[in-house]
């Protein structure tokens, strides 16, 4: 399904979205106060029925973005609009009504489920809360239908979460998330805790359900392979900002930003063989409390130039492609991949 951006207003828009936390640096009461910029001004749109993949390493702000989208935390700046209206963050009536239309799936299904309730009751719970007009029998019938849709057997209805496998639990979470026919699913590492064979089952299930119900999704994962499988569009985050955006094929096969280039080259794949060159970045991602000046990637960037240390590159857009890098600009306009490092390219043998 390829949503037509031009014809309809996006389901979700984020503009200048930021979330800062006040923290104290180590040193107890003497520690200096500082600001942790978990999300630092991001813009994105999500069309109806579209899946936007959000990738990046721990601490890059992907999960905070999910919380901002759902209205779980208030933005420090900017706003999120869902279907044209700002997402409320007061957890009041408007927020609850909106939450019927946006649901979430997290990494750990056991943590997301109530251990003391049989699974059918948990799947029916959103109906109980948001659809009091339905009779108990109708709710039961809908829960049974949802269980069938996610591949759970009717005889499992009375089971408790601990009696199910990890994959089955994630199916319960998915069934519950879909109970109210949401327009938006926020999936934060939905298959990261699952074994490979079960991960494939759940990914196929999400694809099938999406084809049937047409939900849009913000799909967060550190696994590029999984994101490519699921997403229509990918945004790469680094230290609270989007540094690159485009279709999965563009971003993963012709990455523009040096960070994306390194990320893609570092993703191990048994299919790619062992002859793939790898860009090994030096150092760790910097502490988001003390984000470097200029381009925040410059201390680890193998091809950074003087300008990168002082001048922060804006996220420039060109059609469906976007990149924030001084070195990813083509001479005649448009984008070109940043030059590959010569010394930092280390082969499999390194």
């Amino acid at each position: 399904m390829s949503p037509d951006l031009a014809s309809s207003e996006p389901l979700l828009t984020a503009r200048g979205l930021a979330r800062h936390y006040g923290v104290r640096l180590p040193g107890g009461l003497m520690g200096r106060r500082a600001t942790l910029k978990a999300v630092d001004g991001i813009d994105f749109d999500l069309a109806r029925g579209e899946i936007l993949g959000l990738v990046g390493e721990s601490g890059c702000g992907k999960s905070t973005t999910a919380k901002l989208v759902l209205g779980h935390v208030a933005p420090s700046a900017g706003e999120v609009r869902f279907d044209g209206a700002p997402v409320p963050v007061d957890h009041g009536g408007d927020w609850r009504r909106l939450r019927r239309r946006m649901q979430m799936i997290y990494q750990d299904p056991l943590g997301a489920l109530d251990r003391r309730l049989p699974i059918a009751a948990q799947i029916a719970e959103p109906l109980q809360i948001h659809r009091p007009d339905l009779s108990r029998a109708d709710r039961g019938a809908r829960a049974a239908e949802l269980m069938r849709a996610v591949g759970l057997r009717p005889d499992q209805a009375a089971r408790y979460p601990h009696e199910l496998s990890g994959g089955q639990r994630q199916r319960v979470v998915i069934a519950r998330a879909l109970a109210l026919d949401p327009e938006l699913l926020v999936c934060d590492e939905p298959v990261s805790a699952l074994d490979v064979s079960v991960q494939a089952q759940v990914l196929n299930l999400l694809e099938d359900l999406r084809a049937r119900t047409g939900f849009a999704a913000l799909f967060i994962s550190h696994d590029l392979k999984v994101v490519r499988q699921m997403a229509d569009r990918v945004a790469v985050m680094y230290l609270g900002r989007i540094v690159e955006e485009g279709s999965p094929e563009e971003v993963l096969h012709r990455p523009l930003h040096p960070y994306t280039q390194a990320l893609v080259s570092a993703a191990p794949s048994p299919h790619a063989g062992r002859r793939r060159a790898r860009i090994v970045l030096r150092g760790d991602p910097p502490n988001p409390v003390e984000a470097p000046a200029g381009c925040s990637f410059h201390p680890r960037c193998p091809v950074a130039v003087a300008r990168c240390r002082t001048e922060r590159p804006p996220l420039l857009r060109e059609g469906r492609r976007a990149v924030a890098c001084h070195l990813a600009q083509a001479a005649g306009g448009g984008f070109a991949p940043a030059p590959l490092p010569s010394a930092a390219v280390s082969g499999a043998a390194a």
Partner: peptide
């Protein structure tokens, strides 16, 4: 069962 970065996208 493993998705891949390279090659044509296929159903798992």
């Amino acid at each position: 069962a493993l998705p891949d970065i390279e090659g044509p996208k296929r159903r798992l």
